[in-house]
């Protein structure tokens, strides 16, 4: 199994690492048993994601996909962020080994989870807009 240069570059120098103080939305997906947790913070200005940061516990692909996903949605509208697919994250990283595809799924879900939280904080039911997101659950690992 070998990572692309792009994956290694994002892993070595991850973008947007850290926390946002007083975020407008926070999402967390994955769980420690499976060895992957992604937490994403967003700051929203009007309908735009003005800032995004992440914290990730996980493998090289988990860190690289988190980093790439934050880059892809920073400055974009919420609608555009919700359209980001795991496939787009993978393509932007010049691909992932088959056993690591789930990391890109987690990155997509982390964004959706943060946006959901944003709507919840504003008293809006996120489900019709964002759809169902698997919560950070215990004892079940996705391939």
């Amino acid at each position: 199994m070998a990572y692309s240069e792009k994956v290694m570059e994002h892993f070595a120098n991850p973008r947007n690492v850290g926390e946002i103080e007083n975020p407008d939305g926070v999402g967390e997906v994955g769980n420690p048993t499976c060895g992957d947790i992604m937490r994403m913070y967003i700051k929203v200005d009007g309908d735009k994601i003005s800032d995004v940061k992440f914290m990730t516990f996980g493998c090289g692909a988990a860190i690289a996909t988190s980093s790439m996903a934050t880059e892809l949605i920073k400055g974009k509208t919420i609608d555009d962020a919700l359209k980001l697919t795991n496939r787009a994250v993978m393509e932007a990283l010049d691909g992932l080994p088959a056993v690591k595809v789930h990391c890109s799924v987690l990155a997509e879900q982390a964004i959706k989870s943060a946006v959901s939280d944003y709507y919840k904080r504003r008293g809006i039911d996120p489900t019709p807009i964002v759809g169902e997101i698997p919560e950070a659950e215990h004892g079940h690992c996705a391939v």
Partner: peptide, 14 residues
């Protein structure tokens, strides 16, 4: 520093 699990461990939230 970038691990949410470590953050939770430090806050005693595990």
């Amino acid at each position: 520093k970038m691990s949410p699990l470590w953050d939770a461990i430090q806050r005693g939230k595990i």
